[in-house]
Structures are given as structure tokens and as C-alpha cells.
Design a protein around this nucleic acid. Structure first.
Lengths: 404, 404
DNA sequence: TTCGATTTGTTGCTGGGCACAACATACGGG
DNA sequence: CCCGTATGTTGTGCCCAGCAACAAATCGAA
């Protein structure tokens, strides 16, 4: 995880052992919350038992970890006292400014979603000031809700549909919002410094089980376009500029239909929302279509009604998507794909095709069969992932929280 | 860089500050060898001057770093004493077992190639024992040459064309050598523990300038197949199983010509050596073709003679390769490609096409124009990269060398 | 030339933090 | 009931980084 405001470009800076070990101990507690003892941490990290105890004590007095009583053990010996993350300590605020809705949520240290509020509104009909005002209002409400729930917001993160400059906390370009070079995090409450990232990237962090396990996977985030978040060893891979995961314009067929990007046969032209609509024979109606949800629901309805054209369109989209993803898996040697965004809602028809394509085209399949999973969260995924990224920064550097 | 035999799966182990800081100081010396002082290191790392001095002293007495006299400075103040890597300290042994040649080389701490020996021989005509014997003989010769040059071999690495299990130091499968589950590193001299990896991966590490700069790039290694080594932030990305970089079977055209892998229209069918040969109208002659070098030289000859069919084949191959690479760059947000293997020899005809495709298809091109570079080394690249990986392990953990 | 300013490198001191060992604690089992 | 076993705590010593003062070596200005 990115270390917040600390510009850790590479590991060229001196190391602070205490901070590193506090994070290490906390991470082990997070990965086995309620099932781990001081002695376990010592054994797993290689630290001495006394050192592990000292670290845990500091985390307990700091309000990040609690004891959950003694655990009955089968073996002989003194029973261990189990440790768990506190659910009433620091919490993260996540905001998602999408084209057709704005979402906020609060996630506590355990990763649980404690507050969630989604407002469906087409941003394209509003000015930038109105949008920012709405973010501010929703954030303050979330802030109040967190406080009422005995949580302390210790950071925030905003997901936007576009290109961001994380270091400058600025939205470089968000075409669908009409934003350019906008320091959007400034509208957040002053006491929570704001992180910023792409929706697909934050959405990739929303999966509950995967992050703790230091998993590597591709989170496919289908919206109007098709993007992906790349998680390697439990950390989001952002690329050299932060634009990683642009799979929507991978070429499926050099002689395929033209794409607004200037090329031909891009993945979006086969597996994007518009393409599926068109292939299903639904007249595209940008006037009334209020964005992702309703359109996707429409397709799903027709598929459930066994409309032949729709089913054929979904099968075709799944095949093309699966073939493209198989290529990505081959390039990166990943064995796991998560289908998010519209593909989550269309999973009954898309997922089997993706699974088949990936299973047959992944070169490592004979040794390690790749898995295809449906995302846990739908439209809330980016906001939840954003909030979770704040929590990950706390786990990555607990000292910042411990020092007030 | 991988920490050798130490199974550092993730950063779940305790940190040793002294070891980390020794590596940190050494890395800074390596990146600016001859142009850096103790005070510089202190400034760049954030360590105290006295600490930096202590670290450097330890590295000097350990034989890794030397002083190269005072540097005249423009500014006022005491002139700094420049530090540089020693070229007579530890060295790495690199071995490459290819289908049609075996190469060994020795690289010193500065990255300079101090010994190199390539034996052209078609391994397919020999038994496994013969091949292993040759590796052993060549390694002993390299060992003797290093000793005569006042170098101390402190490790070795073998590159093989196939799938390896690094943790077990075993070749899982090398079809063209007929190997399966072979612990090839055991034939190396006993005092150098052997690393193991794929040829494309090691070749990616052979580029001189790029590694020190913590660069991110894709090293395309065209041989009979097409592979790639992925370097992210100066570290080789190997994937979850170590099979990353398999771009040869990315789909270019779903309705293209069939491929032995069972799919259709794979990249190899357009930009692989065999495909270029066939498209150029050269009768494929596996009987006399002694592998990569001669065949590629043949194509290059015909291209130099302006043979229309060959030029068209190369143009087509470059276009398809470039388009595929652009997709990879978009997925990973990389801005740099290095053309190695056969593409290095065919660069005059391939590189411009790749450059054009990448420039037009890389989505970040308007903000950061991608660069296409021709590899520094040819067939020796895997062996040199292998040796260099040994050196990188020394720089990554100098304590192991300092403790004898 | 001389003296102050400036930067580099070294030395002695201090404190943080980890390992180690010994001990108290708390169970299971014969 | 006592022994073996495992957990957690306490006291001690050592490694190592930070700090400050000082010596060294140069530039620049008077």
C-alpha cells in the first residue's frame, strides 16, 4: 500500500525498525483477527516473544488492538490470549464521484462497512461547484455518523472516473465530469487528508477476503468503458504514471469495428456496455438512460427472459472478455480474476464464458487452474475500496495513528 | 531482487536495520559509482552522516567499496572523497543453456563483463549427461578465469529455456532440452549456490543502464517463441508461479492461422521466427538450421538485399508485435520497451514499426511518449543477466558477503 | 596572506529497541 | 500432585542510529 503522504518513491530511505515492526505485528493481527496470540506473532515474524509483546502492548494502549479472552487449546501449556482488531478505533472515509451517482462510506479497522450512503444523480446536469458541494455535504454526514458510532475518521479517499495525479492529489482529467486539474480532495473535512485514485483501482481494493491474503488478481471493472485494477502480492500496482489497467482498448481484432479512440476492434467494442446493448438489439437511448445501473438492469431483464439476441450478445461479450483476460493473465502470471462493475450484474451469463476462455487459454492452466470470481460489491465497490485504502495506510504505518 | 535462498515470500519477517542500511548505502554507491561521497549518501538516505560513515567504512573493510581520491569541487568547504564499487571483489557466474549454444560469463560488482565464453552446439543431439558435463566444464573454466583475474565468485545463476521452480532450484520443464524436474544447479561448483530462472527473465536483467535507475520496462525476448521479461521499479516481476511474460500466445486475431498451442492467431504466428521465415518465402528447413543465429542472419541478409517479400514480412511482424506490445504497455502503464533476441538483429526493420504502433496505440502517449530501445546484448544477454542477478543479490544483502 | 565561512568526515556520548535468559503463570496428563 | 509444556513478563546487555562537538580541508574576501 502507498504510505500516504510519505513519498516513498523506492526503498531509498532509511528504515525505522519500530515503525516497521509495529506495522508487521498489526498486519498479522489483521490477517488472523481473533485467532492469533503474541506468541504466534513472535513465531511468524521471527521477532522475540518479548519484542512481540512490547509491540502488541503499544498497539493495545494505542487503541488499535484488543484482547478477546483466553482461547481454549488442545495442547498442553498455558492458554494464549487471543488478539483482535478493535472495531471502535480509527475508520476511513471513502467517496466515489461517478457519472450518475455519488457514494460515501465509512469502513472501520476490521474492514467492516459501518456507514454507506449512495445518491443517484446524473452529475452531467450539474456544475462543478454543485458536485463539490454534494461531496462536502455527504462527507460531513458520514463524518457525523462515524462520530455517533464512536469511530474516529483518520483519513479519506476519493475515487473518480478519470486520470489522477496521486502525488499532487489532483484530478488530471475526468472527461465525464468535465474536470481538469482539479484538487478535489480540498472539499473534504480538513482533519482528514485525502487520497485520490481511479475508480477501478479503488474498486480492486474492495474485495474483503483477498487483500489480507496477499493475493494477486485482476479486478475487472466494467462500466461504460472497461478497466482493471491490478493487485500484486496484496498491493495495488499503479504503473509508472498511475494509469495501469487500461484493458478497454486492447485490440481484439485489428480489422474489427472502429473505436472512438482511433483504433479498430478494441475490447470495449465487444464487451463494453454500449456494445452489448447494440448487439442485443436494444436501441441505445442516451437521453433517458441514467447511467450504469438502469441500463445493466435492462440487459439483465432481457437475458432472464431468454431473449435470444441478448443471450447471444452476452455470450459473445463473455468470450471476447475472457480471451482478453487470459492474455493478461499470461502476461502477468496471475491465477485469479474478479468480475466487477456491470459484469457482476451480468455474471450469470458472462462468468461461465469468461471461465471457459480463461481455463483453455491460460498457459499455466494444467498446473494451476485459474479461478474466476464475481465481485462482492456492486456500484459501492469504489467507495468501499477507497475507505479500505485508508485503513490499509493505517495498518501500513500505525505510528501515525498512535501519535494522535 | 530476490534475496537468494532466503524465502522472503512477503515482508512478513522482522527487519534487520543494519543489513538494510548497508544494502541501501551500497545501492547508492552502485548508482553513482565514483560520483558520490559519504555526505551524499547521508543526504539521500536521511541517515546521519556519522551513520553513513560507519556503513561505508564497513563496506570498505569488507572489500565492496573503495575511495577514489578527493573530488575537486566548485563550492566552498572540505572536498569530498569519492566512493566507487570495487572491481576486484565479488563476482557472479552466469550460465545460459540454450537449445543451440551454451554460454558462461563472469560479471564483477560494477556490472562489467569480465569473462565470456559461448560454445555453439545443438543440445538436441546430445544426452542430458553430456549437456550437464559441458556446463560443469565451462563453469570450472570460468571459475579459474575469475580467480586468475583476482575475482571471487560468490554465486551463480543458470538460465534455461523453459519453466523453472526457483524455490526448489529445479527445471520443471524444458521441452527443447528434454528436461523435466531436473535440479540443474547441482552441477555447478559447490562453493557457489545456484539461482535459476527463465532465459527471458534473466535477459531482461542484462541491460546495463536500466537497472540502476529503478526503471520499469518490458524486455521482449524473441527466439523461436516470443517471451518478455517484466521489470517494475528495477525489480524483475516473476508472477505468482514465475511464468510471467508469456506474450507469445497473446491473441492477435481470433480468426487467424492455427497455432500448435491449440488457439488461433497467436502473436508467434505473426512475429515469431518461423512465421517471419514463412512469410518471407524462405523454405523452413529444420534439418540444417542450427537454431537462432544462422536463421536470423539469413533473414537479415535478405532484408539488406531489399528482398520485397522479406521486407514485407518484417514490416508485418513489427506492426503486429508493436500493436501487441502497446496493449501490454497500456495494461501495465509502462513507457519503455527493449527489443532483444531476434528482434535485436532485425531491429533496423522491426523497431521503426514497433515504435510507430506503440506511439499511436499507447494511451498515455500524449502525456508521456513511450520509448523503444534495442537491446545491448544479443545471444549473451541471458548469461550476462544471470550473472548480474548474482551481483544484485550481493547489493541487496551485502552482509552475506561481508560474513565471508 | 589571513581569517571567516562552509562543507566533509570522525569521535564520544546517549538513548531506543531488540535479543536473551530467567521467571511467573496456567494449563494437560500421568 | 507433580512434571512437562506453552504463554507472557521482567531485567539485563548489546547493537546501532542520532546528536553534538571537533578536526580537516577548501573557497572567498579583506
Amino acid at each position: 500500500m502507498h504510505a500516504g503522504t510519505v513519498r516513498r518513491r523506492h526503498d531509498t530511505t532509511a528504515v525505522n525498525p519500530r515503525a516497521t515492526h509495529l506495522s508487521l505485528a498489526l498486519r498479522h493481527v489483521a490477517e488472523a483477527s481473533g485467532q492469533i496470540s503474541r506468541a504466534d506473532i513472535a513465531a511468524r515474524t521471527g521477532l522475540n516473544r518479548s519484542t512481540a509483546s512490547s509491540l502488541i502492548d503499544e498497539l493495545i494502549t494505542g487503541g488499535l488492538v484488543k484482547e478477546t479472552g483466553a482461547t481454549p487449546r488442545a495442547r498442553a501449556g498455558r492458554p494464549a490470549t487471543a488478539l483482535a482488531l478493535r472495531d471502535d478505533g480509527p475508520a476511513g472515509l471513502g467517496v466515489d464521484v461517478n457519472v450518475d451517482y455519488t457514494a460515501v462510506c465509512v469502513v472501520d479497522l476490521t474492514g467492516a462497512v459501518r456507514y454507506k450512503h449512495v445518491v443517484a444523480v446524473d452529475q452531467r446536469g450539474h456544475t462543478m461547484t454543485e458536485i463539490l458541494d454534494r461531496i462536502n455535504t455527504l462527507s460531513r454526514a458520514a463524518h457525523a455518523a462515524a462520530r455517533a458510532d464512536e469511530l474516529t475518521l483518520c483519513g479519506s479517499a476519493i475515487a473518480v472516473p478519470g486520470i489522477v495525479d496521486r502525488d499532487r492529489a489532483t484530478v488530471t482529467l475526468a472527461p465525464n465530469l468535465g474536470w481538469r486539474d482539479l484538487a478535489v480532495t480540498e472539499v473534504l473535512p480538513a482533519d482528514v487528508h485525502g487520497l485520490l485514485d481511479n475508480e477501478a483501482n479503488f474498486a480492486a481494493l474492495s474485495e474483503p477476503g483477498l487483500l489480507h491474503a496477499r493475493a494477486s488478481y485482476l479486478y475487472v471493472s466494467g462500466q461504460i468503458g472497461v478497466g482493471a485494477g491490478i493487485v500484486l502480492d496484496g498491493r495495488l500496482y499503479r504503473g509508472t504514471h498511475g494509469w495501469s489497467g487500461e484493458i478497454g482498448h486492447l485490440t481484439v481484432d485489428r480489422d474489427g469495428p472502429p473505436c472512438p479512440c482511433g483504433r479498430r476492434g478494441c475490447l470495449e467494442r465487444y464487451a463494453g456496455q454500449e456494445a452489448i446493448l447494440r448487439a442485443a438489439g436494444v436501441p441505445s437511448d442516451p437521453g433517458t438512460a441514467l447511467g450504469v445501473r438502469p441500463t445493466v438492469a435492462l440487459i439483465a431483464d432481457r437475458a432472464r427472459a431468454n431473449d435470444p439476441a441478448t443471450l447471444a450478445a452476452l455470450t459473445r461479450a463473455g468470450q471476447v472478455l475472457g480471451a482478453t483476460l487470459a492474455g493478461c493473465l499470461n502476461l502477468l502470471d496471475l491465477g485469479h480474476v474478479v468480475l466487477g462493475g456491470i459484469y457482476r450484474d451480468l455474471a450469470p451469463w458472462i462468468a461461465p464464458e469468461v471461465e471457459r476462455e480463461v481455463a483453455t487459454q491460460f498457459l499455466g492452466a494444467p498446473w494451476a487452474r485459474p479461478t474466476v470470481e464475481v465481485a462482492t460489491y456492486g456500484p459501492e465497490a469504489p467507495a468501499i475500496g477507497a475507505a479500505r485504502s485508508v485503513i490499509h495506510d493505517v495498518i501500513g504505518d500505525p505510528l501515525r495513528w498512535l501519535n494522535h
